[in-house]
């Protein structure tokens, strides 16, 4: 199960992701983040309510980040819980993604 809500705040389009980013929901996550990248020039993916992520979910974030890069869209991942952040760190995502502890706005 995964859910998304969007909100524009302080010049950012905040995509709040709630639930689990696994092999079943990764396509939905990628679609939601890509759609945001198409709408705005600054995207904050708020993962505070993301309970779980696997490599399939990471790939979805990576693909959205690539789409953002190719369109010169700023893309930041924010508010990860400790276990989700551990998965990002083990995958070296901190080298290629902008990661904030809190929302930038």
């Amino acid at each position: 199960m995964i859910d998304f809500t969007q909100e524009t705040r302080g010049g950012w389009l905040v995509v709040r992701v709630k639930g689990r980013a696994d092999a079943e929901t990764a396509d939905q996550l990628e679609a939601a983040l890509r759609s945001a990248v198409d709408q705005h020039s600054r995207i904050a993916a708020d993962f505070a309510a993301l309970d779980y992520i696997s490599s399939a979910g990471l790939r979805a974030v990576l693909q959205a980040a690539r789409a953002a890069q190719s369109k010169d869209v700023e893309f930041a991942v924010c508010g990860m819980s400790a276990p989700v952040k551990k998965v990002f760190d083990m995958s070296g995502m901190q080298h290629v993604l902008t990661i904030h502890g809190e929302l930038p706005c």
Binding site: S55, A65, S91, G92, L97
Partner: peptide, 22 residues
Amino acid sequence: DVTAPLEDRPVGGLGIHLARQV
């Protein structure tokens, strides 16, 4: 290679890498 830049990131192999880490 988990240090590769975004454009060179392989999309496969990450799952087993994670399993081996934990």
